[in-house]
Design a protein around this nucleic acid. Structure first.
Lengths: 205, 205, 205, 205
DNA sequence: AATGAATGAGTCTTCATTCAT
DNA sequence: AATGAATGAAGACTCATTCAT
């Protein structure tokens, strides 16, 4: 399972390729067994290489997991940033955009099914995951502020609260679909119903 | 720091008390260092007892963490269940009730500051945390269904989606306030603004 | 083989006794195989204990060898210091005293046959052995200065040179007798002939 | 730093030259870090070659150190043998000859500062160093016997004892000057005062 | 001939668990 | 019931050695 997007493989040095192979395998194994339960030997076996080879590419086990986390976070960030948070000019556009963010995240999930599960198991350094969430929070804030400025979202929104809620929901969706695969229908419901609910509220108008 | 609610202490056997002391200390130490980083000796030192004593009360380290998780989950469940999900008869009552759930959770947090942090670090067995969330999901669903029946929440709500979103947000709030203490003002914003936002939605009416 | 002088055993704590048992065994095994060639497991087997036990008494392998060196050096120092370097008042007394130093060293050798061999193999930190030799050099210098003051040694002696030579010879004797056992007759020759030669010189008078 | 004496380089094959480069570098690195602490990679880096290249010239690491020791011992032996032990016919000539041996050894030291330090660190196989010392002992014995026969040394000398003492002192001088550089003045004192002391003795005549 | 990526045997070290006191 | 000394399985890491290029 490659964490790398295939096309650029050609440009990478032999050594860089190997490094990524290891990061990928490590993330996969850590996602399944957890950091402490997984031994270097497990990853080595999984890759079909000698475990000494690790230490040509990483100082130690900690460095592997650390870089793998960075790598996974970068994947998510890049995925989300494909949507310009200032692009929407109407409620419909906004809604469509949020749906596209979901879609992109689901696609990432399909390509790297272990990515999120891996992140959620990094109890070694929970701070790093928190940091990633906060990075995503910045994005959510921009998205909401744009809507307020453009006039299709309420002007009295508590942006912090709203942003955190949005992030919390989206990541929890990712966590769920990572833990046990989510049906296409359920995904659709999150994208449409979930998004609409957020905008229209739950109360009887 | 006792996980036990004080009143019932009198009825417990000496042995049960000791067992709970250990669970409490374990949760606290695990919350700070993580399961693998924390040794039995750390907990023993923290309690001021010999580490051999553990094995008179628990089979092994896994059992300690497992029971500590159960215990923590029960605390949360009991806290939430103090609110009858079918009690509200109007939007105002519903809103007040949701605020009270927040309040109760914040109070639990104050009494056991390590409880949530402990739960979030249990990478050993993420499934258990997921199960706890789903337990809480049942409650959220009831809460929403009650609002629909009573007529103050929209009848076309996707209850699954709404329930999961509610749980996701609430637990993320708890996670944040566990990671770094939340100001009274911020708590208030979550309780009032957060709740209203959920009900009224973000879009410009 | 005890490095400890037996009589005081009674006064030492159980823990101190164990520590010395380990130092003793370590010195013995290191003397035979060398520091790197000897594994913790070898010493453990030799003592008939589990190898984890080491780490209750010493931080790591380096600490064991370091303390063992200190210990061995102390043994030699104490042995030599039993002779007061200012005690002799005549050439005969001086000669007898030097002979007694040899005798004491030979006796030490008999009690701890591996002590010197161990020291000579500590290539890890040759500086420490050098330091020990220099400590002994101070003693030798006092011995010679005493003879000069009392008037039975030449007044024009280069004390540094003479002291170093004395130490060099004595330690080389110890090295030889540690490497392959020295006959009683050879020991006697070193004590008497060797000492006389040093005093009378080699040249035809 | 070449261990090889330059003149004969021309006659050696390319392969032999390389072999000696490696031995030289090995001795230097081993002298500084010790056999076990120094990796093949260290020596390779020092030489600016790939570490795989070693195995074209030597079976394994042990063989390298073994040959390096042989080589160093040979250097010393050749240095000493430049003086014919039967050449002296008077006390003055003898004394001058012993001084020349010191001088030659100091010169060797200057050309190969790491040579002696290297030898003293060979804890792997202390026997080999001992053997070298005994080789030198044969030479010392001849030197003394010559003096006895020619009549300028005492006829009642214990030749074994005297020889061993001479070797012990000389090698300890070398050890000292290898460990920390010896001043020209100190060298002179060893050559003249040290030698005279050995011949005239320490006692007040 | 030279290289250095890959390998895995070997070792130190940790720590949950046992058990004699 | 409580203790903590002893244990050894388990795992991270190093580095001499091999071998395809």
């Amino acid at each position: 399972m490659r964490l790398v997007t295939a096309p650029e493989t050609g440009t990478k040095s032999r050594s860089d390729q190997r490094r990524e192979q290891i990061l990928d395998a490590a993330a996969r194994v850590f996602a399944e067994k957890g950091y402490h339960e997984a031994g270097i030997a497990d990853i080595a076996t999984d890759l079909g290489i000698g475990h000494g080879t690790f230490y040509r590419y990483f100082q130690n086990k900690k460095e592997i997991v650390s870089q793998a986390v960075d790598w996974a976070v970068r994947q998510i960030t890049e995925t989300v940033l494909e949507e310009d948070p200032a692009a929407s000019n109407s409620l419909a556009e906004h809604r469509a955009q949020v749906e596209r963010v979901y879609l992109r995240l689901f696609t990432l999930q399909d390509r790297h099914p272990h990515l999120i599960r891996f992140l959620y198991r990094q109890a070694t350094d929970p701070a790093k995951l928190a940091l990633a969430l906060d990075g995503f929070l910045g994005y959510a804030t921009q998205l909401i502020n744009n809507g307020i400025q453009k006039g299709f979202l309420r002007t009295d929104i508590d942006v912090d609260i709203a942003g955190q809620a949005l992030v919390a929901v989206m990541f929890d969706v990712m966590r769920r679909s990572a833990t046990n695969p989510m049906s296409a229908e359920m995904r659709q419901r999150w994208m449409t119903t979930g998004t609409r609910m957020m905008l229209e509220g739950l109360q009887q108008p």
